[in-house]
Structures are given as C-alpha cells and as structure tokens.
C-alpha cells in the first residue's frame, strides 16, 4: 500500500509549532503550504486547492470551527478534507470537530506517526 503524497495546507498560528510541523511533514515527503489564521486559510483553500488541510482550532481572526463550517458551505472547497488539531485535554472538541465537518482530528501535542496515518487515510479516501 502506498502513501499518497500531495500538497497539505497547514493552518497554525503558533510559529514554533508551525515550523516544526512543516519540517516534519516535509521530511515525510509531503509538500506543505501554511497559513496563520482561519481567514487566510479559506482564501488559500480556494486559490491553492490543497489535497488536505491540517487546521488548529484555536486561531486568530477566524477560528477553526468557523473556518470549517464556511468551507463546508462552499461547494468549491467542501471536498477538501480537513483534519482538526485539538488540545489534548478537551475530549468534547473531537465530537465538535466532526460535527463542524472535519474528516478527522488529531490531538496536540501531535503523535506524529499517528498523524501521518490519519493524513494518508483521509487523502486516500478522497481520491
């Protein structure tokens, strides 16, 4: 079974964490573009058409929940799978992310091998 490598949009406002995730995803063979808030993320989804979005839910300008719901409402980009990154402690965030239309979620701090699996599954399912 092969892993499909496509362009991923990483939405994360924390610079240290964003750099780290970008580097790890690139090392795993993915191509990465980044956004630091929900509004820019929606804009980039429209223009860049990434294969998948990794979205932190706690974002400035427009939070992840709103961005997800708006993406779901837009027929142009509704098919791009979004994986929500939620804080470890908040169990109810998981259910909320699925309700907002996310394909899946991962908890922070990120278990990276598990995240790669979730990414591969979501991209494969979407082809």
């Amino acid at each position: 079974m092969t892993v499909t490598l496509r362009r991923i949009l990483l939405v994360e406002d924390n610079e240290v964490n964003r750099n780290m995730l970008t580097r790890r995803l690139e090392r795993a063979g993915h191509s990465v573009i980044t956004a630091a808030d929900g509004a820019i993320a929606l804009d980039m989804m429209l223009k860049e058409r990434p294969a998948l979005v990794l979205m932190d839910m706690n974002l400035p300008v427009k939070d992840g929940w709103t961005a997800c719901r708006e993406a779901q409402a837009d027929p142009e980009i509704r098919d791009i799978p979004i994986i929500a990154l939620t804080a470890h402690a908040m169990e109810e965030d998981r259910a909320r992310a699925l309700e907002a239309g996310c394909a899946d979620f991962a908890t922070k701090p990120v278990d990276f091998p598990a995240l790669l699996t979730v990414i591969a599954a979501a991209i494969d399912a979407n082809i």
Binding site: V16, N17, M20, R23, A87, K108, F112
Partner: peptide, 30 residues
C-alpha cells in the same frame, strides 16, 4: 519560549505552552 511563558503568565498561557511543548517534542523526536 517556555521559560518566557512561565515568567509572564497570561490568560492564553496554557494554549501557548501546549504549542511550544508540542514543538519541542517534534524536534526532539526528529
């Protein structure tokens, strides 16, 4: 960054700490 955050606690300090801790973990794993 962690020591800075510990020195200047704010309302959002937990969120920021979690992010930085996640980043440290990622770099350490690499």
């Amino acid at each position: 960054r962690i020591s800075e955050l510990l020195d200047t606690p704010s309302s959002d300090v937990n969120h920021d700490l979690l992010n930085v801790i996640g980043a440290i973990r990622g770099y350490a794993e690499m």
